[in-house]
Write a protein that binds this DNA or RNA. Structure first.
Lengths: 333, 333
DNA sequence: TTCTTTAATGAAAACGTTTACATTTGTGAT
DNA sequence: ATCACAAATGTAAACGTTTTCATTAAAGAA
């Protein structure tokens, strides 16, 4: 592969001129420009980003630290974040942890070695933000920032959103409402998880409703855990008339499980989701759910991160975007 | 940030020893090892990957060139590919093109500048493989390699898979079968698209069936296009008894559209999918579909690519993995 | 022509590593 | 004590850029 010296030699100019050809061509004489242009074409030269990165001590990459990208909500958020990154000259480096601390640690080590200029955490573990703070590495938490933290973060108000959705169920006439909560890992609490349960409980309390303990079902945000929750529900002597699910995927699994047992949704039991992933509207029945502003979440988080990376002034580093309820057919009186 | 010189100075050794501390610690005396160890800890030193990359002229990244990652099939494949990459010391750099040629070109330029050591193309455009061949850049096509090409590729036999699924519909007693084909872009043909249509037609011919031209429906692999196809289907005077869909997402949308019009699936009309994405089994009704070996596809493609990157001998660079049919409830006699 | 100013170009340092090679130190044998 | 040999360590070049600063060339003014 030809390097800048080869081009300079062929064009009979210095390497500085070749460098300028790419960065500040207006500084070159037409003569030099032409010669370099020809040499570049002849040698099929492309500047080596590795060398540039070393010199500028910038990789141009942003690492996205995430447990799992197969959930459409996550992949949609990442897509939007990637768009923003591209728009500002950065690329997204995947850091998929599969809920594994050791894997996470490996990525953290990579970040320290400057493989990325900063990172976006879409999970709830402590280690990454601890590292970000200690090492002063540009960091933004997307979706899962604990309340007490002062680190940059972007998310919706999950408590309020869960409360609103539960209130909707109550307003539809439900009194016996179960909650299918999620949990990513046994090791650490996830704000998304606790907040949604909190909002659910707040709504019940506000309306003077109490919940039977066995109606607090435990899933893991997967459709399979929704099916399992249906099994539990079906085995109960007294069943709720509605189930508030902490995400769409569990709601979809739950509906699947209920239907397999011959129950009708929403006639026999209402089910609400959370996230409004793309397929929510195509489900049978279409899912009543909480819509998160996916595009804004991804965009805002990435722009915030890049502002931090580039040392731009950041006015507000903890963004709380607004949710909306989407009423479809999976819930009714 | 401390660099290798700082560590060497503090530990009173040469930078070579510090370098060896990380790469070949067994070469060091216990004495030197201890001093360096202490210095590294004190200075919180982490080797700079940018410098190492430049020297070794390797980025340790693999770019995944893909139109869209929000389809679960794609994100699942990428997840598996990423696992394989991690296992071999590489990271995945996202190159999401959104079906945009200009964006694709930008990524290609990045690859040429050595931001990645090679790339995995999950789309059908010509430009990337042309570049790979001309510039001798490690390349593997995953899912979308045209037949005549000799470039490394990994995919299933889409013609056979589509034929098998269509045959299944025929075996279930269907004679009036429509096809909902996909299309990613008007600009270029996608092998996946043409192959699946080809397989569909082969099965019809083999069984002496002819298809009404209006039953060849055109979608774009999105659920929305499935809904649209349902609309078209419903407006026809004569309707098919089954629809072979080129992917699960369109099948899901199609079913949604049919149900909205009061039709029952599969009683009134059977619908088959393709890919067996994770939610296919949770759909209502659960989708009869073609299962692709997602994990193997991702793994094999990434390992093949890295073998090429590392100059390892490659025995077979065009892998055709096997599919299976998954019969669930969206089809019946 | 000579001087001044601006435009164009070049020389060289710097980024932080790895590694081939040279050198020093250590060990055991004589 | 001397030597041979291995083990440990150090020196310095190299990777391919960007950029500062100095220098040269060109252009305009006197």
């Amino acid at each position: 592969m030809a390097n800048i010296n080869d081009v300079a030699r062929l064009a009979d100019v210095s390497i500085a001129s070749v460098s300028r050809y790419f960065s500040k061509p207006e500084l070159l004489s037409k003569r030099a420009y032409g010669r370099i242009s020809a040499a570049v074409a002849e040698l099929n030269y492309h500047p080596n980003a590795l060398a540039r990165n070393l010199l500028k001590s910038r990789s141009g990459n942003v690492m996205v630290l995430v447990n799992d990208i197969t959930n459409p909500f996550i992949s949609q958020v990442i897509t939007e974040a990637d768009k923003a990154a591209q728009a500002r000259g950065y690329s997204v480096l995947l850091g998929i942890t599969h809920h594994c601390a050791a894997t996470e640690e490996k990525y953290i080590e990579q970040i320290r070695s400057k493989v990325a200029d900063g990172f976006l955490q879409l999970s709830a573990t402590q280690r990454p933000r601890q590292m970000a703070r200690e090492q002063c590495i540009p960091y933004v938490n997307l979706l899962e920032c604990p309340h007490e933290h002062d680190l940059p973060s972007v998310q919706i108000d999950n408590v309020a959103a869960a409360r609103d959705m539960t209130q909707l169920l109550i307003d539809q006439g439900h009194r016996d409402i179960a909650c299918l909560k999620g949990q990513f890992s046994d090791d650490y609490p996830s704000p998304v998880t606790t907040d949604r349960v909190e909002g659910f409980c707040q709504a019940l309390n506000k309306n003077g409703l109490t919940m039977r303990p066995e109606w607090m079902l435990q899933g893991d945000y997967s459709p399979a855990s929704g099916v399992e929750a249906a099994r539990q529900l079906l085995s109960m002597s007294r069943r709720p008339s509605a189930v508030f699910c902490a995400n769409d995927y569990m709601a979809i699994g739950l509906i699947r499980g209920l239907k397999d047992a011959g129950l009708r949704v929403p006639q026999d039991i209402s089910v609400s989701g959370f996230d409004d992933v793309d397929i929510a509207r195509y489900n049978n029945p279409p899912l009543t759910t909480v819509s998160q502003p996916i595009d804004q979440l991804g965009r805002a988080a990435m722009h915030l991160l890049i502002d931090i990376i580039e040392g731009l002034p950041v006015t507000n580093n903890t963004l709380r975007l607004s949710h909306t309820l989407v009423v479809r057919d999976s819930t009714q009186n």
